[in-house]
């Protein structure tokens, strides 16, 4: 088995200590950092994605794999120029004003990170102004809004309006989710997308950012 295949295997098995050691060994052996990512770490993560979708792997196992991938990436980051760092896109995410539910949002964050997105998680109870500020600061391709309460859903609309007022709406896609949210609500408030779970949230972002 080549080192690349072994590294992919360690990611698939969620063996983060092993993945860290092997990544270090491959760096020391002079392998190309980008190749280590693409043919080793990412290659493993892609298999994880397929298995997860097929129901052969469960979320906590995916999390361990993602951890294995990121321990490797941490070692490689300093060796790669920022612009060459492969990323699926940058997304700012948060639970909206008045809402403290964050289990679903954290899951979305973890799943998207494991799919190669760079995520800035603002936390819970985030008002429109704070989203606007974060968009200015981080220039993400998309922002994700989460709400689990009927009362706080309204803040999603306010956030979209605030982005418009600041002239930022065209520069960033808005995706929304949470138990009471539906496609029709997304259409109503003029969001760019809605996803019902973390896996489809990842696909949605891939689609609209591409």
């Amino acid at each position: 088995m080549s080192d690349f295949t072994s590294l992919a295997e360690l990611v698939i098995n969620g063996n983060y200590n092993g993945a860290k050691d092997l990544t270090q060994k491959m760096i020391d052996n002079g392998n190309d950092p980008l190749e280590i990512i693409n043919q080793g770490l990412m290659a493993g993560m892609n298999v994880v994605g397929v298995r997860f979708k097929a129901g052969d792997m469960y979320v906590p196992e995916v999390m361990m794999s993602a951890k294995a991938m990121s321990t490797g990436i941490e070692l490689l980051k300093p060796l790669i120029a920022d612009k060459d760092m492969p990323t699926a896109g940058k997304v700012v995410i948060g639970t909206v004003k008045g809402d403290l539910h964050d289990i679903g949002k954290k899951l979305v964050v973890m799943m998207m990170e494991s799919a190669g997105f760079e995520i800035i998680d603002l936390g819970v109870d985030i008002d429109p102004a704070a989203f606007v500020k974060a968009v200015k600061e981080h220039s993400p391709q998309a922002i994700g809004l989460s709400a689990l309460l009927t009362t706080t859903m309204l803040s999603m609309k306010d956030t979209i309006e605030a982005l418009k007022e600041e002239g930022l709406r065209d520069s960033v896609k808005v995706v929304i989710g949470g138990a009471p949210i539906s496609q029709s609500f997304a259409d109503e408030i003029g969001a760019d997308g809605y996803a019902a779970d973390a896996a489809s949230a990842t696909e949605l972002c891939r689609r609209i950012i591409a």
Partner: peptide
């Protein structure tokens, strides 16, 4: 409990 397949509580 979180169902680890469907991610529902």
């Amino acid at each position: 409990p979180l169902d680890m397949r469907t991610m529902q509580a």
